[in-house]
Amino acid sequence: MSECRLVEAGQMGRVAYGRISPNEDLVQSVEKLCLAQGFRNAFVRGALGSLVDACMEQHDGSALVVRGPAVEIVSLAGEVRAQTDGSLRAALTGVVSDTQGQVYGGPFVAGANPICVTFEVTLEEWLPAEGAVTAPPLENT
């Protein structure tokens, strides 16, 4: 069986540091920060903060709600991509810890992850080159 992977050429651009205010949504706020900085595409490079509650998508499409207050984000990774209609869409995945120290992971559901006190995030702009290069199929051995 063959697998095809997309490799996108480009270069890194500017770096922006942003603070998200209490009760603002994590995913939507990262999109807004990119819009404010003029980033059409970006990577999340670092983050620090907590959520009131966390809502993460599970493999079966259901949502896992982790109740707070103060659900800590242990790690956060993701990217923001320009859509064909000109809007931006953030895809953020992370690991959170509840008030008892249990950890959970997965993609954050947009509109369902309110910031607790404040949240700091570092974004790095991605400037894709014209067109994309598709790598040859990988052989399974």
Rank of each mutant, 00 (worst) to 15 (best):
M1Q: 07
S2K: 10
C4M: 12
C4Q: 13
L6N: 05
V7P: 00
M12S: 13
M12F: 15
G13D: 10
A16T: 13
A16G: 01
P22D: 09
N23M: 14
L26M: 09
E31A: 10
K32E: 13
K32H: 06
C34R: 05
A36D: 15
Q37L: 01
G38P: 02
G38S: 10
R40L: 11
A42H: 01
F43W: 09
V44D: 00
L48D: 09
L48I: 03
G49M: 08
S50D: 08
A54L: 04
C55T: 10
M56A: 02
H59V: 11
G61H: 08
G61S: 11
L64M: 15
V65A: 07
V66Q: 00
R67H: 12
G68E: 07
V71C: 06
V74I: 15
V80Q: 03
V80G: 01
Q83C: 10
Q83F: 07
T84A: 14
A91T: 15
T93N: 09
V95E: 03
V96K: 00
S97W: 00
Q100W: 12
V103A: 02
Y104G: 02
Y104F: 15
G106Y: 00
A110Y: 03
G111F: 10
N113R: 07
N113E: 09
P114R: 09
P114C: 11
C116R: 06
V121T: 08
V121N: 05
T122H: 03
L123G: 05
P128H: 07
A129P: 03
E130P: 07
T134P: 00
A135V: 12
A135M: 14
P136Y: 08
P136G: 06
